[in-house]
């Protein structure tokens, strides 16, 4: 299989205010992820997991090195290209669901398609959203507002929303962080299942090793270095 995601010598440091010495998060990270693989990145808080995920998703810019997705440098695009790239290629799931409280679960799922970067629209979009909700087990709750859903259900809606544009890479940043153990495991099973069924490359950041072990590969931050954990 070809390398879908390629990270080369990636370095990130945050400059200190008022001219102080900069704070190095990590340096010279290298990582290869094949298309359709599932990958977990673990590590203690502050080790750089979310920073790495933000760099992969183009939400932040690296201090050095590059991130290539399907051979395209994520950080060498114009703002318009980057927006289209994120909308069409990437799906994000965050620790908090970030659903709009005024819209139903179905409407929340359809929101990314409204950005106008192509894809389904109209009834086709609605059908696609309903299908995704069915896949995450919420077809009966499509017309419920987020306030009428449980925490786990909201996060499932967030997963469905991340998949509406058919992304080839799904980035999940601590998706189970706000859930209890049972719901966390259920959500991870869902992600794994979607990864297999849709062949969506999955990168999950978590600090729970038990959940990470459900991924095909586990990488861990160790003192600023990223090392593969033998299963």
């Amino acid at each position: 299989m070809s390398n879908f995601l390629e990270i080369k010598n990636l370095t990130k440091a945050y400059s200190a205010p008022q001219g102080g010495s900069s704070s190095l998060v990590f340096s010279d990270l290298n990582l290869l992820v094949e298309a359709g693989k599932s990958l977990a990145i673990v590590g203690p808080s502050g080790s750089g997991k979310s920073t790495l995920l933000n760099l992969i998703g183009g939400l932040d810019r690296p201090t050095g090195g590059e991130v290539l997705i399907e051979g395209k440098n994520v950080h060498q695009q114009s703002p318009e290209e980057a927006a289209r790239f994120r909308n069409r290629t990437l799906g994000f799931v965050f620790q908090s669901h970030h659903l709009l409280p005024a819209l139903s679960a179905l409407e929340n799922v359809m929101i990314p398609a409204l950005a106008g970067h192509g894809g389904a629209s109209g009834q086709a979009l609605q059908n696609q959203a309903l299908e995704l909700l069915h896949e995450v087990g919420l077809s009966e709750r499509a017309n419920h507002l987020p306030g009428q859903l449980s925490g786990g259900e909201r996060q499932r809606v967030a997963v469905a929303r991340a998949l509406i544009n058919g992304p080839r890479l799904l980035l999940a940043d601590e998706p189970t962080g706000a859930l209890d153990q049972a719901k966390a495991e259920s959500l991870m099973e869902l992600l794994v299942r979607l990864n297999r069924e849709k062949e969506t490359t999955l990168v999950v950041v978590t600090h729970a090793l038990s959940l990470a072990n459900q991924m095909e590969e586990v990488w861990a931050f160790d003192d600023g270095d990223l090392k593969k954990v033998d299963s």
């Binding site: 929101i111 409204l114 979009l125 609605q126």
Partner: peptide
Amino acid sequence: MRIWRIVFANL
């Protein structure tokens, strides 16, 4: 769904 649906729903 259109963008106005989001606006009115939020209102």
